[in-house]
Design a protein around this nucleic acid. Sequence first.
DNA 1: GTTAAGTATATTGTGCGCAAGACAATTAAG
DNA 2: CTTAATTGTCTTGCGCACAATATACTTAAC
Lengths: 147, 147
Amino acid sequence: MSELNEETMLHLDNQVCFALYSATNAMIRAYRPMLKALDLTYPQYLTMLVFWQQDAISVKVLGEQLHLDSGTLTPLLKRLELKGLIRRDRSKEDERARILCLTDAGTALKEQAKSVPLNMFCHAGLPKEELLMMKASCEALLSNLTD
Amino acid sequence: MSELNEETMLHLDNQVCFALYSATNAMIRAYRPMLKALDLTYPQYLTMLVFWQQDAISVKVLGEQLHLDSGTLTPLLKRLELKGLIRRDRSKEDERARILCLTDAGTALKEQAKSVPLNMFCHAGLPKEELLMMKASCEALLSNLTD
DNA sequence: GTTAAGTATATTGTGCGCAAGACAATTAAG
DNA sequence: CTTAATTGTCTTGCGCACAATATACTTAAC
């Protein structure tokens, strides 16, 4: 990439995006066995993280936090409901809006999830400073791509 | 993350993995309109990058390059075949193996694809040095997670 | 009150991403 | 040659991710 040659840039090994894509796939693969103990997929785990942080929110607010739309979230939320982790009530003020909130089982699951982040940090095997830089770059990229 | 507190680490805003995941989703979203002109999805585009680089390979070799398995690749390759971009022949030496190779249309598509990487680089809006560091970190992470 | 515009959620259809398992071809062992 | 183990591909089933569309509700304008 030191030269912006079109031929060279088409090479897989020179593509940042491919590295990002492959690392993300590998990361989700690495979470799988850990989250299997909680009977959660990675997007379901992210959703639970939001609820543990702020309960009783709408699909819209949840989607803003996760950068996902309702087409993705609605079936995911139905599965979480089926597992007995959340309820999907209707808002009294606005009958269109769902109010998503944790059940006791959903709240209780947080205890079991507490060990996951540190466990993942160990698997990653990168120095904390490098991870923090990576996080900052990803957030900058996300911001640039979404405006 | 300066403290390895379990409560703090469960917070979405402190998770490198979520940043990685969101950035990758946004990146694939950003490719979509660009690749629509080529009638390719992002994983299909990656597959074509491999073929433009080394033609006449098996599903196994392709999977090693892309870090994807045959359950993902077989239907994707059928769609590329249906579009007339590749052929899926059988090997003479080993009847189990497919030999995937570009058609003339597949080869020709490379010209149209040449502008994509630079276009994406502009959208990303990050300095080259930062992207190179990000790429290196992603590759290190992938390597650590796959051994 | 009717109409029009905007908003929140749900539905449908396509294409990954992967686990699990099936199957046929190849190779190794006896 | 026969059996057993391995290998390469395919199939099935599930769960995202998202575009496009539908539906129902709310608000504002008249």
